[in-house]
Design a protein around this nucleic acid. Structure first.
Length: 677
RNA sequence: GGACCAGUAGUUCAGUGGAUAGAAUGGCUGCCUGCGGAGCAGUUGGUCGUCGGUUCGAAUCCGAUCUGGUCCGCCA
């Protein structure tokens, strides 16, 4: 069999190259392509380039090659069209070999090309300040499928989640959470959603306080102290009135106007949408917390030190709960992490201080008062980083310690990455993180260079992707404004259940179907888009079950499987038919049949290409094309009613192989197959 | 001001140097409920943001430009 070792396309290419060498003494590398339609053959070689090298007209060269070409087993016909040499495959042997290969593989398309690699995929790593929303979820899906893809290529894959429990944004949440807890108010919804409400509320209080203090500091005293955490209408209009005549610079003044309006709007919106949490917390906070801003700072600093046991357990409890909510959502969608790394653990390890000392010693820190900046351009230029990564511009430096001497999150990130690969003895590490973090991600690598660890840095890659917006608006955790996978899941499930009512399924079956359809629907909707393109999430479209959707793929599987089932009901011995495969005749006449087989042959190479180019979406799109080819086959090539029996058997084999293809693809894109729908 | 990304049928998206740029959906026209459904066939629709360049050949590579998004010293 030719492609036990190499693909027929490559094989033919080598033959042609040999001819060129023998005949013209020319060593060259040809490229092959697929002709636009089957009428023009199955493999095509443009000869323009070679013709030019030899100074022979392309058509003349094609004729010369055609004369020397003989390959009766796999090629039926060789034709010349302009400067193209077109080969027509022998359908009989190509089909048979392809199908036998699919049959004999445990998992068709599985490979060992990455079997020497140990790969970390860090993904999701969402702030524990609320539930996962569809935007985070794009991250989860992409990370998960990249990992699955590498695993299918033979790599050992380790999925990690970095828990960002140290940010300043956490503190107000902790404060609010415990205010409610002391009052005996417990979550009445999924806990991460509950946390999301508290976070949005407390953060708004904090921002209002900061705004008021800022206004005070520039001499605008139109705000009252007794309602430090809320804005009244009179208050805002009075402030804006005074501000108009204030001698601030235009842009600064505009910014203040904007933030007054925004906070006023957010406050009212929260009050209206989540009155339970919002009103209760406003009461509690204004009564018990005299200075939220101050308390937030104290909490952050203390937690970073990690010495105050009581405070540590307060922080850990809340973040743990939020994280549990994330994990619950992820697991619902069949996404699992192997390890969780806590940012606070990194901070407490003392590694950050060591790193700062070392960077200082290596003279890569810029001083600005107490603040420290990483001299990215100096590192990039002096240590060959810019050259290696082909960066030609001057790189701005990045702040890693603020003017109060407090280390910022990039410090922890650098420390984390210094030892991250060791945790799994990894040969490579993908960080699946939104594209807005390109610069910080670059900073980490530069810092590792600056620390004399370029080998580690070179093994880290930022897999970035675009954001997900909602129709007409962005998602905003701080405003409790988002769509969660959980709620879309419920919507799709309801939709499916309505459809299933008309059918005769047991409760258990119906549950299984609606759950698997719901997850595939959402996952596929996001996965199939190019990661670099902005997704506008439209719930109505994600709920759609036809067209290019996850459920449509599942439906195709069930449809194909049904043929096999029916065959068994007609007392056909499938195993026996399959074991006779080698004797089968594939004198294919139907175009639809041929296209399907050719596409199945392509599957392993699609996967390799997807892994190499880091395009998980291409696997999804290929799956859809394959399924579309199957439906065309289904419509034009009767299987069970095919006559004679030998034709029926060969088509049964095709259907069986198609199922195996889908099983492999589903494993990679992480959707479940269903036996019936 | 600098950097990165995107711009393709009315719409949602494929297509990372090859032939007449594909699919789905929408619109229009037929057929039909025949292994499993609102299915099938046909038809309509694009100066691939714009302008240059490289090439036998460009949606694809290079340069400029427009539009949108994101980032660029104290959030993560």
């Amino acid at each position: 069999m030719y492609f036990m070792t190499e693909r027929i396309y490559e094989y033919q290419k080598n033959i042609l190259e040999k001819i060129l060498e023998d005949k013209y003494d020319l060593k060259t590398s040809l490229i092959w392509s697929k002709p636009p339609s089957s009428d023009l053959g199955d493999i095509s070689f443009p000869l323009f380039n070679v013709a030019k090298q030899l100074s022979i007209p392309p058509s003349e060269l094609a004729i010369a090659i055609q004369e020397s070409f003989s390959e009766p087993k796999y090629i039926n016909k060789v034709e010349i069209q302009g400067g193209f040499l077109n080969l027509y495959l022998n359908k009989q042997s190509f089909s048979l070999d392809t199908l036998l290969k699919i049959l004999s593989d445990a998992k068709y398309g599985q490979s060992t090309i990455k079997s020497s690699e140990r790969i970390i995929v860090e993904h999701t790593s969402s702030n524990p300040t609320g539930p996962l929303h569809i935007g985070h979820f794009r991250n989860s899906i992409l990370g998960d499928v990249i990992g699955r893809l590498f695993r299918f290529m033979g790599a050992a894959v380790n999925f990690r989640y970095y828990v960002n429990d140290l940010g300043r944004q956490i503190a107000p949440l902790i404060i609010g959470y415990h205010l409610l807890k002391e009052k005996g108010i417990e979550p009445n919804i999924k806990v991460d959603l509950w946390i999301g409400k508290i976070y949005a509320t407390m953060n708004t209080f904090l921002e209002i306080q900061q705004l008021k203090e800022h206004l005070n500091s520039i001499g605008i005293k139109g705000t009252s102290k007794d309602n430090l955490y809320s804005l009244s209408l009179e208050e805002t209009s009075k402030c804006k009135e005074v501000l108009k005549d204030h001698k601030l610079r235009g842009t600064e003044k505009e910014q203040i106007f904007e933030s007054i309006d925004k906070l006023f709007r957010v406050q009212n919106s929260l009050e209206e949408r989540i009155p339970d949490v919002y009103l209760e917390l406003r009461k509690l906070t204004s009564k018990q917390i005299t200075d939220l801003n101050q308390l937030t700072m104290e909490y952050v600093i203390e937690y970073q030190k990690g010495k105050d046991k009581e405070l540590v357990s307060k922080f850990r409890k809340v973040t743990q709960e939020a994280l549990a909510g994330h994990v619950e959502t992820l697991n619902l969608f069949n996404i699992f992490h192997d390890d969780f790394d806590w940012e606070s653990d990194v901070a407490w390890s003392g590694e950050v201080e060591t790193i700062l000392v070392k960077l200082e010693k290596n003279k890569f820190l810029i001083h600005d008062g107490k603040a420290r900046l990483l001299d990215n351009d100096k590192i990039g230029t002096n240590l060959g980083f810019k050259e290696k990564y082909n960066l030609k511009y001057e790189m701005p430096s990045s702040i890693i310690v603020n003017s109060e001497g407090i280390t910022l999150y990039p410090c922890r990130d650098i420390a984390y990455h210094l030892h991250k690969l060791e945790k799994f003895n990894a040969s490579y590490c993908y960080n699946v993180v939104g594209k807005e973090q390109q610069f910080p991600q670059l900073t980490v690598k530069l810092a590792l260079y600056g620390l004399g660890e370029p080998d580690i840095a070179d093994k880290i890659e930022h897999f970035d992707f675009e954001t997900v917006n909602l129709v007409g608006r962005k998602m905003a955790g701080r405003e409790f404004e988002y769509v969660t996978p959980d709620e879309v899941y419920d919507l799709v499930k309801d939709e499916v259940n309505i459809l299933l009512e008309e059918r005769d399924y047991s409760e258990e079956e119906a549950k299984n179907i609606s759950e698997k359809v719901a997850t595939s629907s959402i996952k596929y909707f996001i996965l199939r888009m190019d990661p670099k393109k902005l997704v506008v999430f439209d719930v109505k479209k994600a709920v759609n079950l036809n067209e290019n959707t996850g459920p449509f793929l599942q439906y195709s599987y069930a449809r194909a499987l049904n043929i096999i089932k029916k065959a068994k009901e007609n007392s056909l011995e499938i195993q026996e038919i399959l074991s006779n495969a080698e004797q089968m005749n594939f004198d294919i006449e139907k175009e639809e049949e041929w296209e399907l087989i050719k596409m199945m042959e392509e599957l392993p190479y699609i996967l390799v290409k997807a892994a190499e180019s880091l395009r998980p979406d291409s696997v999804a799109n290929f799956t859809y094309s394959l399924v579309a080819a199957f439906h065309k086959f289904y419509d034009s090539c009767p299987v069970l009613k095919a006559n004679p029996d030998t034709l029926r058997d060969s088509r049964l084999l095709i259907v069986y192989c198609f199922l195996k293809c889908l099983e492999s693809l589903f494993e990679v894109i992480g959707i479940d197959y269903l036996e019936k729908m």
